[in-house]
Every structure is written in structure tokens, then in C-alpha cells.
């Protein structure tokens, strides 16, 4: 079983990497593509990536751990981001975050056991006029609608892109 699963990750990763082999500066692009495919960076996929691009695994991990937007653990189908940028900070985002943590029963950075939701923070999404804001699956959701949207999502669980 285990090795079967591995094999499929191996093959999937290899097929993703095909356009990147031998290309200069392919590394970060390749990480993006792998994350796109799996939703995060699975360990086995990074091992295959290191082998295929002939990079030390340590270097692959060094870069993957450097950027906040690369994830090493599976993420939820729905991503809830509380903005903690300067304007949202001034307008009380800490209270919003606390509220979200209790509503979702998740700590900042955690993913629910059923992988329906991930709660995290983001440093400014560029609509400071609406501060404090929460972004759910790339949509800025007005503060008063947040709980309703989450309720709807957990009912339908139709994670949109």
C-alpha cells in the first residue's frame, strides 16, 4: 500500500516537472507547480523534485521553508485569511482573529481535521479602505458576512478556487 501511494506521487511529480528539467531558474516555478497540483508540498514530491532537478534536498527545503506561501502540510479546501496589515491592525484585526478562532475552533495557521478549512493571517491584501478584512478563498468578505459565508461553506463545502 505505502509504496503504491509513493509511486503515484512519484509519477505525478515527475510529470509536473517535465517542462522544468534542464531549464535555468526552474526551481521556484517547479515548487509552485507541485504545490498547485497537490495543494501543498508533500515530502515525497520534494524528494522527487530534488532528484529530478539535481538539487540537494536541503536546498529545496531551504527555499520551500523560506517562503510563507509554500506549505509543507495539507491545507483546507477553504482558506480563511484574516488580514493583519497596518490598516486592519488599527481597525482591530486582533479581535477579528480571536473571533474567527473561536467560531472555527482553529488556531491561527491550523487546518480542521476534515480539511474543510484553514485559518491563517495575511499581511495586507490591498483593500485597506475596507479594514478590517477577512479573505475567504480569494474573495474579500465584509466583516458582517464572514460567519454566514463560513456557515454556508461548511454546509456545502464547495471549495471554489
Amino acid at each position: 500500500m505505502g509504496s503504491e501511494r509513493h509511486t503515484s506521487v512519484d509519477e505525478h511529480t515527475r510529470s509536473i516537472l517535465v517542462p522544468h528539467i534542464g531549464r535555468q531558474g526552474a526551481f521556484v516555478d517547479a515548487l509552485h507547480d507541485v504545490q498547485q497540483a497537490f495543494g501543498y508540498l508533500p515530502e515525497q514530491a520534494l524528494r522527487v523534485l530534488a532528484d529530478e532537478l539535481k538539487l540537494p534536498l536541503s536546498q529545496v527545503w531551504g527555499v520551500a521553508s523560506f517562503y510563507d506561501q509554500f506549505y509543507s502540510v495539507p491545507r483546507g479546501r477553504n482558506i480563511v485569511r484574516v488580514c493583519t496589515g497596518t490598516a486592519c491592525q488599527v481597525r482591530g484585526c486582533q479581535a477579528v482573529l480571536q473571533r474567527m478562532e473561536s467560531v472555527m475552533d482553529l488556531k491561527n495557521g491550523e487546518t480542521s481535521a476534515d480539511r474543510a478549512f484553514t485559518l491563517e493571517t495575511v499581511n495586507c491584501v490591498g483593500c485597506c479602505g475596507l479594514a478590517p478584512v477577512v479573505v475567504i478563498n480569494k474573495k474579500v468578505v465584509p466583516n458582517r458576512d464572514v460567519e454566514r459565508v463560513i456557515r454556508d461553506l461548511s454546509k456545502g463545502d464547495e471549495g471554489d478556487e
Partner: peptide, 14 residues
């Protein structure tokens, strides 16, 4: 480590 070892060390996080 990269020059002569197993090449397993690097800077991690930021």
C-alpha cells in the same frame, strides 16, 4: 556539508 558531507544542512525559515 555541501562541499564534502552529505549536503543535508542549509538555512531554513526566514
Amino acid at each position: 556539508c555541501h562541499l564534502q558531507g552529505a549536503g543535508i544542512l542549509d538555512f531554513i525559515d526566514r
